[in-house]
Simulated assay, not measured.
Amino acid sequence: MGSRVMGLIMGCLILVIILSKGGEAVTTYEVGGSLGWVVPPNTTYYKEWAADKTFVVGDSLSFNWTGTHDVAEASKTQYENCEKPSIKFSSSGVLELTKEGPLYFLCTIGDHCNSGQKLEINVSASNSTTPSTPSASPPPPPSASVSAHVYVNALFATTSMLFVYFMA
């Protein structure tokens, strides 16, 4: 009996170690919060929206809109001058942040960019900095905001724990 209890304790320890090492949560940000991706009420709206957020590689931006809009990733010069780069999305979608550094997005429709429909963010390499502040919109379901590898690691850890438990 004592060896079974020790096996269960070891299995639980393995589970804790694997989950703490492999499972950093990622965040999906609804760009613009409840307003979404539209021509904003003022030209600083998206800058203010992004100001209290910490974006990291692996996070995602969800661009949602109704009406006529698009999203293009731009260079800094294109962003500053509202020049029209290649379209990234012509319909609502989610963009995963895969590189660190500054990123620039804008709407290429009409005068939307000059009216403030543009977003500048800075992406960090990891979330070892201050935790992200979620947007004003409701959080996405866990399947959208937590990496799939967390679930694989949890399954592996549980299987390992059961193996250790029954082999003891």
Rank of each mutant, 00 (worst) to 15 (best):
S62H: 14
C107Y: 01
F163C: 06
E120S: 08
L106W: 02
Y46F: 13
L106F: 06
G58Y: 06
A154K: 06
S160D: 00
L162G: 13
F166Q: 06
P140W: 02
I87W: 05
L35T: 07
T68R: 13
L97V: 10
K84A: 05
V71Q: 00
L61W: 03
S90T: 15
A136Y: 12
A74K: 00
C82R: 01
S160Y: 06
E80K: 08
L95C: 08
S124P: 03
M161G: 10
C107L: 01
S34R: 11
S137M: 07
P138D: 15
A148D: 13
E73Y: 03
L119M: 02
E73G: 02
V5F: 12
M167G: 01
V123D: 05
T44G: 11
E83P: 00
L119T: 02
S137P: 02
S20Y: 10
A136E: 15
K53G: 05
A154N: 09
L8V: 14
G23Q: 07
L97R: 07
E24V: 11
N64S: 14
K53S: 07
M6S: 10
Y46A: 03
A50W: 03
Y79H: 09
S147G: 14
V5A: 15
K84P: 03
H69W: 03
W49K: 00
Y29A: 05
M1D: 12
G116P: 04
K84V: 04
A168T: 10
K21I: 13
D111V: 09
T98W: 04
V123C: 07
L97F: 07
V38Y: 12
Y79G: 01
K53Q: 05
D70I: 01
E100P: 10
V26R: 11
L61T: 01
A136Q: 14
E24I: 07
V26W: 13
S132L: 03
T43G: 10
S124E: 10
M6Q: 09
K99A: 14
F55G: 04
W49V: 02
V164I: 11
N153A: 14
A157F: 00
T68Q: 12
S92R: 01
S86H: 09
I9Q: 05
S124I: 04
P131D: 06
P140C: 04
N114H: 09
T159W: 12
I14R: 02
M161L: 08
A72R: 00
V39T: 11
E120L: 12
V16A: 13
L8Y: 03
R4S: 15
W37L: 03
V39A: 08
T129V: 11
E120H: 10
L95K: 06
S132M: 02
Y46K: 02
T129H: 09
P41G: 14
G101A: 05
S75Y: 01
K47T: 15
N64A: 12
E80S: 11
N127Q: 09
S124T: 13
P131I: 06
E24Q: 14
I14G: 00
E24Y: 13
S90F: 08
S91K: 14
